[in-house]
């Protein structure tokens, strides 16, 4: 198996670049798709942002300075592309803070590729009520399986702050989910 350094040199070189980029897609396409999907919610939007992300990755490869891992660098590009999309949507519809909260639920309802049952819908409602950054941090840690250090590099938030946000969020979700489970059982 090739080391990351070898793989990166293939990506940056001229001879094996295309083959290496194909491999890069195999390795990261799904991980980045699911990361983006949770940020922009609907499948159609996630598809657009994913394509833009990989085109930007391809164009930016010559500028990759290897200060962070390749994975973290790609997640940062995906995160920035998603945030750009979210900000454009907010500006387009002149959303107030309440509207932004409602947008999460509205986007879910509008997405033809969301098939949530009662418990999943309740979980999404809890997530929608969380502040945007807190929700993103929870999702990156819990669903994307990223390390706290990686989340700090991607979002630009201090690692200690991220840990505090995450553990508080887990506690909030657990309490709420327990209530939901009790409600569903009764």
């Amino acid at each position: 198996m090739k080391s990351e350094a070898e793989f990166i040199s293939e990506l940056l070189g001229a001879n094996k670049k295309d083959k290496a980029f194909n491999k890069l897609l195999d390795l990261y396409q799904k991980r980045l798709y699911w990361h983006i999907r949770k940020l922009v919610i609907t499948h159609d939007n996630a598809n657009d942002v994913l394509q833009n992300t990989f085109i930007r990755i391809y164009k930016s490869l010559p500028n990759f300075q290897q200060k962070s891992s390749l994975s973290t660098w790609m997640f940062r590009i995906a995160y920035n592309e998603s945030m750009r999309f979210v900000d454009q949507s907010k500006a387009k519809y002149h959303d107030s803070l309440d509207d932004v909260k409602n947008n999460y639920s509205n986007n879910l309802a509008a997405d033809s590729y969301f098939e949530g049952d009662e418990i999943q819908l309740k979980l999404h409602r809890i997530l929608a009520d969380l502040p945007e950054k807190t929700r993103q941090i929870f999702q990156m840690k819990y669903y994307d399986d990223l390390k706290f250090r990686e989340i700090a590099e991607i979002t630009g938030i201090h690692e200690g702050t991220i840990k505090t946000y995450y553990y508080n969020t887990v506690s909030t979700i657990e309490k709420n989910m327990l209530n939901i489970e009790l409600l569903v059982k009764n």
Binding site: K30, R31, W34, R37, K38, H43, Y113, G116, H124
Partner: peptide, 14 residues
């Protein structure tokens, strides 16, 4: 990754 997003969050893909 697929299982988690589909089962826990109800997200699907074509």
């Amino acid at each position: 990754l697929d299982k988690r997003h589909c089962k826990e969050l109800g997200f699907k893909t074509p």
